[in-house]
C-alpha cells in the first residue's frame, strides 16, 4: 500500500510539472505548482515523513498563491498553439525520470528518486527555455521543492524536515519576486 501511494505521489508530481511546462498563464502555473507540491508531499507521507510532507505542501501552496497574485496574465494558458513538442517532452522526460530513478540512482526509494528526477528535469526544461519571468520562477520553485525532498534523501533522516523547510522557503521566495516590466520578460510562446 505504501509503495502504491508513493508511486501515486510520483505520478502526481510528474503531472504537475508537465502542467508547468504546458501552461502560459497564472492559473496553469499555480495549479501545476500545487500538483507538484501535493505529489512530492504524498510521496514523502507514504514513506512515513509527515513533517517534511507538511512543509512541502505548505510551501507549495504558499508559493502557488503568491505566484498567482504576482502573474499578470489571466487564465490557464494551457496547450496553446504549437505545444505538441512540449507534450512530447513531458512524456519523454517522464520516461527518462523512471529510468534515472530505477537504474542510475540508488539513494532512497525508487518512487522518491523518480519524483525528484521528473520534477527537476521538467522544471529545468521550462526554466532553461523560457524568457517569461513568471514561468521561469514558477518552474524554479518546483525544482526548489524537489531539491528539498532530494536533500533529505542525501542526508540523514533527521535532516529531512530542515531540508524540506529550506526547499519550501526557496520556492516561496522565488514566486514572491516582483515581476519585471513586460519588455524584459515576454511570454516564450
Amino acid at each position: 500500500m505504501t509503495g502504491v501511494l508513493a508511486l501515486m505521489g510520483a505520478l502526481v508530481a510528474w503531472f504537475g510539472a508537465s502542467i508547468l511546462v504546458l501552461a502560459d498563464a497564472r492559473r496553469g502555473f499555480a495549479f501545476g505548482l500545487l500538483l507538484v507540491a501535493a505529489g512530492l508531499s504524498l510521496e514523502r507521507l507514504a514513506e512515513g515523513g509527515w513533517q517534511p510532507a507538511l512543509l512541502l505542501a505548505a510551501g507549495g501552496l504558499t508559493a502557488a498563491l503568491v505566484g498567482f497574485r504576482r502573474t499578470p496574465r489571466q487564465g490557464w494558458g494551457l496547450l496553446g498553439p504549437g505545444s505538441t513538442p512540449r507534450v512530447i517532452l513531458c512524456l519523454v522526460f517522464g520516461a527518462g525520470a523512471v529510468w534515472l530513478g530505477t537504474a542510475l540512482l540508488t539513494i532512497g526509494s525508487w518512487q522518491g528518486r523518480t519524483a525528484v528526477a521528473a520534477v527537476a528535469a521538467l522544471g529545468a526544461a521550462r526554466l532553461l527555455t523560457t524568457d517569461d519571468q513568471r514561468a521561469g520562477l514558477t518552474a524554479g520553485a518546483a525544482v526548489a521543492l524537489a531539491c528539498g525532498l532530494a536533500a533529505g534523501l542525501v542526508n540523514s533522516s533527521e535532516a529531512e524536515t530542515a531540508a524540506a523547510l529550506a526547499g519550501a522557503l526557496a520556492a516561496v521566495t522565488l514566486c514572491a519576486m516582483p515581476s519585471l516590466p513586460e519588455a524584459a520578460g515576454a511570454p516564450s510562446g
Binding site: 524568457d131 536533500a151 531540508a163 529550506a166 522565488l174 524584459a184
Partner: peptide
C-alpha cells in the same frame, strides 16, 4: 549537504535574474 548548496545556487540565480537589468530574465 550538496543538494542544499545547489538549492542556494538556484535561489541566487532566480533572485539575481529577477533584478531589473538590461538583459532579459
Amino acid at each position: 549537504n550538496p543538494v542544499l548548496v545547489a538549492l542556494a545556487v538556484l535561489l541566487t540565480a532566480g533572485v539575481h535574474a529577477a533584478l531589473p537589468a538590461l538583459r532579459s530574465f
